[in-house]
């Protein structure tokens, strides 16, 4: 973090990738303007940043790249509000800012020597992508047992990181189950069905496992009982939450769930932790 935790590091947009056919999701590859800022910025998959655009404001976005990918940071942004609309119209070489890394991360120490099940839906696949890339890195892969991914979107054109996922498909050190709710493509090579249904078919044991689950509320609602049925305890189910934020450092007071701030005590919580908190998110 910078000495003043509210002051963004200046970064340049190096590359913009349109991810989905509806053009609502774009990935921004950012590079630091100052070498010393880059050296200072060390993060762990699961953390997020405040993307800061002078004159527009700030938005909390998960870091979609892995710390094993050097020289840039990657954020995938859904076009929704004032700042996201603005950044969608920005160009490569434009200057913006980032503050972070913010928040906690997936429980990597606990997940060592365990099977890791990654379940994602729609555009909530960003820090999950960071996590998969991180685990697949040669230095890290043998720290984990089986890695299984269930990732779904409404249609093939709405899947993020498609080329990369197709590469994962070909590997033998990760099991990837891609699914879409529906498609009119007769040659669609992957699954058709909702994420909870595909999870039920593919995830048959909770032994020695952790599940990282990110997606829209409806997906989480129906995936949770599927996981519980095969024996996942609330401690083994890990989720990352979203909330309206401003400061990102647990001071401005708006993103609380009970006595926890999503920005500082989260965004990653186990279901066991969430069960202790008021249902106000």
């Amino acid at each position: 973090m910078a000495d003043n935790p509210y002051l963004p590091y200046p970064v340049k947009i190096q590359q913009i990738i349109t991810e989905t056919e509806d053009k609502n999701l774009k990935t921004f590859k950012l590079v630091f303007l100052n070498k010393e800022d880059e050296e200072r910025f060390t993060f762990i998959p699961g953390q997020f940043c405040e993307i800061s655009i002078a004159g527009q404001g700030e938005i909390p976005i998960g870091i979609a790249s892995s710390p094993t990918e050097k020289g840039f940071l990657m954020f995938t942004v859904n076009k929704t509000g004032v700042v996201t609309r603005f950044i969608h119209n920005m160009k490569e070489e434009n200057i913006i800012g980032i503050r972070g890394p913010l928040g906690n991360w997936y429980p990597w120490e606990k997940m060592e020597e365990k099977n890791v099940v990654v379940i994602g839906g729609g555009f909530a696949f960003t820090t999950l992508r960071a996590s998969i890339v991180y685990m697949l890195h040669p230095e890290n892969r043998n720290k984990f047992k089986d890695i299984t991914v269930v990732y779904g979107a409404r249609s093939p054109g709405l899947l993020l990181y498609r080329e990369e996922i197709a590469e994962w498909e070909k590997r033998d050190d990760i099991n990837v189950h891609i699914t879409v709710d529906a498609t009119d493509d007769p040659n669609w090579p992957y699954n058709i069905g909702f994420v909870p249904t595909v999870t039920e078919q593919k995830i048959t044991t909770s032994e020695d496992s952790y599940a990282l689950v990110c997606g829209p509320p409806i997906m989480i609602k129906f995936t949770q009982p599927v996981l519980e049925k095969v024996g996942f305890t609330p401690e083994q189910i890990i989720m990352s939450l979203e909330m309206r934020m401003k400061c990102g450092i647990g001071i401005c007071g708006r993103c609380n769930i009970g006595d926890k701030y999503v920005c500082k005590d989260g965004p990653v919580f186990s279901l066991a932790q969430l069960n202790e908190l008021p249902k106000e998110y």
Binding site: G55, K246, I251, C252, G253, R254
Partner: peptide, 21 residues
């Protein structure tokens, strides 16, 4: 103590402002 952070711009100069919320 809750607060908001907003940007305000006049032509090409602007401020980031913290307001009580």
């Amino acid at each position: 103590w809750c607060f908001d952070i907003q940007d305000e711009v006049t032509k090409t100069v602007g401020d980031r402002i913290r307001n009580w919320d």
